[in-house]
Write a protein that binds this DNA or RNA. Structure first.
Ligand code: NAD
Ligand code: NAD
Lengths: 252, 252
DNA sequence: TCGATTTTGTTCTCACGTTCACAAGCTCCT
DNA sequence: AGGAGCTTGTGAACGTGAGAACAAAATCGA
């Protein structure tokens, strides 16, 4: 089963010009740092400067950039504008991506009102909701449209990215509709695990999870021994001390 | 320089009862899956069932759970309620954590209106804003209060978690105020890198970054060779083809 | 021109994370 | 009682990521 591969162990497996996932996740941070430097009128920056601005270690930054090519000058640093363009190109935000938002409730409204996407390579082409009382509402310079128009809009505007801000219940169904309409990237805010076919990318933003991660560390800080030291013996199976409705929950 | 450490290579460095960070990030997902199973009236689940519900591989799930203790029964599976309680306890959501939200604009309003936190171990004790025209506004059963009252509120309610939904500009300043008031965990939505002293945990939620990561993969899908193959020679330093204002940006 | 100085690009090593594979342990049936 | 059949918990192999360290390349001043 072990083919005659003879890579040096420890070398990241990357296909032609493929970039490690961890690096991809940091490129947008570098991009933002470069834009900030550029706005401050700074034309050149060393990896140390950039790393500080981006909140990472400079060795890591240099290694990340080296995956894109050799865009710096030894002894000098990086040309801010040039590097910014190269990163923008690598990420793909030199072109605009069409985005639809589905579910114009609390969160959908906030996203629709947000001006920050347009300046970062994304164009919101439609706000969709299934609730007839919402359809027609104006938000900024857009109008909420009926979710039934999805397929038409995706085809007309070459939409490749969909944002789901519906309650958890209908999220999978909405996701399926997006995918079959031709959307191949999804950003999900609903607290459910969505399943998608191969070839479709999905990312989730989950505020409850973020808070719970903070809570875990918070608990460690305040009194290491303050944990309710409940017996861990499996003997107590089924006998749960007294947990009201705290915990996960798929709730709307 | 190599001290007499004799750990077996490959063993994760964890302090007493410390859990790997990657595992901590998945525990809330398991918690939610267990709650969903519980709500469906399922009393027992195998690692395979749970893994499917949580969208992970079953070996990973078992290893994750093994860091908490040995809460399953071989040949049978896990008792849903019991495991749910154990995970909730480990994360720290058997108790309620007091949270303040700073910056009640688009996003702050959405979070304030969201009912999902209360049922997951968090209690929003204050909505704060510096804008006098917002102070006094009712949102649900809460009233927006002046940011100046921060210290008082943190002390009175033992607030340990702060959420920042202000524009990027004032975010670091707000963060410093939170920290000096005694907050030790911060969830940041503003698109800036915040710096905090040791002992303070910080997590960020950044929608532009999420979209840009999707864009990167999207670009690979649609025409591998469709990249604008700009010369990579450093000779063109400073000469940027034609990049309007696309890219990062610290914008409000 | 040459050496001192600076800073990149890359290599090497260690740490962390994921997955496989299987012994240990539990239940149930005969 | 004893074996068949499952499922957990974990050891070991493999893959990915982070960071220290340094050689290579550029600038600058003498
Ligand atoms: N609001 C928050 O701060 C917050 C925080 C964390 C998570 N979330 C999650 O984000 C999602 C949205 O939250 P919200 O507060 O905006 O909810 P919301 O109830 O205010 O809005 C949901 C919207 O989705 C629409 N919708 C429902 N079914 C639909 C369908 N099948 N097709 C199209 N549209 C449909 C509804 O009409 C409604 O307008 C939820 O899953 C919630 O759990 C929200
Ligand atoms: N709205 C979105 O969908 C969205 C998306 C991505 C990122 N963000 C980011 O989230 C943050 C909030 O976005 P928003 O759309 O809600 O912005 P917003 O402008 O609507 O609201 C910001 C609020 O912060 C308050 N504020 C300003 N300075 C303050 C200070 N020093 N102390 C206390 N309060 C202060 C303002 O009064 C305002 O009410 C921004 O950083 C934005 O970049 C928002």
């Amino acid at each position: 089963m072990t083919p005659a591969r003879s890579r040096r162990p420890g070398a990241p497996t990357r296909t032609e010009r493929g970039i490690p996932e961890a690096t991809v996740a940091r490129l947008p941070v570098y991009l933002r740092a470069l834009t900030a430097l550029s706005d401050s009128g700074i034309a050149t920056a060393s990896s140390e400067d950039l790393a500080t601005a981006a909140g990472v270690n400079s060795a890591k930054l240099r290694k990340d950039l080296s995956y894109l090519g050799s865009y710096g000058t030894r002894g000098v640093g990086y040309d801010v504008e040039y590097l910014r363009y190269q990163i923008a190109r690598e990420i793909g935000v030199t072109q605009d991506w069409a985005v639809v938002i589905v579910g114009i409730g609390n969160l959908g409204h906030a996203l629709a009102n947000y001006s920050g996407f347009g300046t970062r390579g994304f164009r919101i082409v439609a706000l969709l909701d299934a609730d007839p009382t919402l359809v027609g509402e104006r938000i900024g310079d857009m109008v909420v449209r009926d979710f039934a128009e999805l397929e038409e809009i995706v085809a007309a505007d070459r939409v490749s990215i969909g944002v789901i801000t519906t309650p958890a219940g209908p999220a999978q169904e909405v996701c399926d509709r997006l995918v079959s309409a031709g959307v191949t990237s999804i950003l999900n805010f609903a607290p459910v695990v969505l399943s998608v076919p191969d070839g479709v990318d999905i990312r989730k933003v989950d505020l409850s999870i973020e808070l719970q991660i903070l809570a875990y560390h918070e608990q460690r800080k305040s009194g290491e021994a303050a944990l309710p030291e409940v017996p861990e013996l499996p003997a107590m199976n089924g006998v749960v001390p007294d947990l009201p409705s705290v915990g996960g929950g798929v709730g709307a």
